[in-house]
């Protein structure tokens, strides 16, 4: 084979590999969650539904990640035998210290996303935006854009294998795709504040 083709091929492969593997680390800092947590243990082994922990407040707003009080209603003492649960009970529940969970789906300040119209009125399942997060066995590190501070899940390419799209999505493109399909295209200020 022509040597020039080989050199070009090697250079191309090197550039692509650098783009896939090295560049994301330049843009995004990985921050670990304070505790290991398994959604799978709760939803499959424990048989719980998403809304058992992630519910609505009385005024219709979404409460998001449960408070320590909610967790402690089951975990006042360790239910299982894992190290992370022991750590959670001893270092958080007994000391009354809220874990500082990092939120993958935290939207920029100028985006307005209410759960009620999507979940209650439109009947969308959680998975349509959050993917299979509820079945995951561990919490992946939060990828934070080094400049904007936004989560990679809401701004930027979703971090699936080889940069491919995961199911669901919480970027503006994902919102627009679904809204346009449902003929809900009004104005910017529908979703921006």
């Amino acid at each position: 084979m022509d040597r020039g083709v080989l050199v070009f091929g090697a250079g191309f492969a090197l550039a692509v590999a650098a783009g896939w593997l090295i560049l994301p680390g330049v843009f995004y800092a990985k921050v670990e969650q304070p505790l290991a947590f398994s959604h799978e243990a709760h939803t499959q082994t424990g048989g719980m539904a998403c809304e058992d922990c992630h519910g609505f407040r009385d005024d219709g707003s979404f409460a998001g990640i449960p408070t320590l009080e909610q967790c402690a209603s089951c975990h006042a003492e360790a239910v299982g035998t894992t190290e992370s649960e022991r750590k959670f009970v001893e270092e958080y529940v007994k000391l009354g210290r809220e874990p500082q969970w990092l939120v993958y789906s935290r939207q920029p300040d100028n985006a307005w996303f209410p759960h009620a119209p999507h979940v209650k009125a439109a009947g969308l399942p959680c998975e349509s935006c959050h993917g299979d997060h509820g079945q995951s066995n561990s919490l992946r590190p939060l990828e934070v854009n080094r400049i904007s501070g936004y989560s990679r899940d809401v701004m930027g390419r979703p971090s699936g294998p080889l940069g491919l799209r995961r199911a669901g999505g919480m970027r503006m493109d994902d919102c627009v795709r679904c809204h346009a399909g449902a003929d809900l295209r009004h104005s910017c200020l529908d979703c921006h504040k």
């Binding site: 609505f56 005024d59 219709g60 707003s61 307005w112 209410p114 009620a116 119209p117 209650k120 009125a121 439109a122 809900l184 200020l189 504040k193």
Partner: peptide
Amino acid sequence: NFCHGRWHAAREKAAADGSTGN
């Protein structure tokens, strides 16, 4: 903008109360 934030909040409340909010 005629208090757009209040309009958003009212839509969220309407959806929580059983309307579409649209």
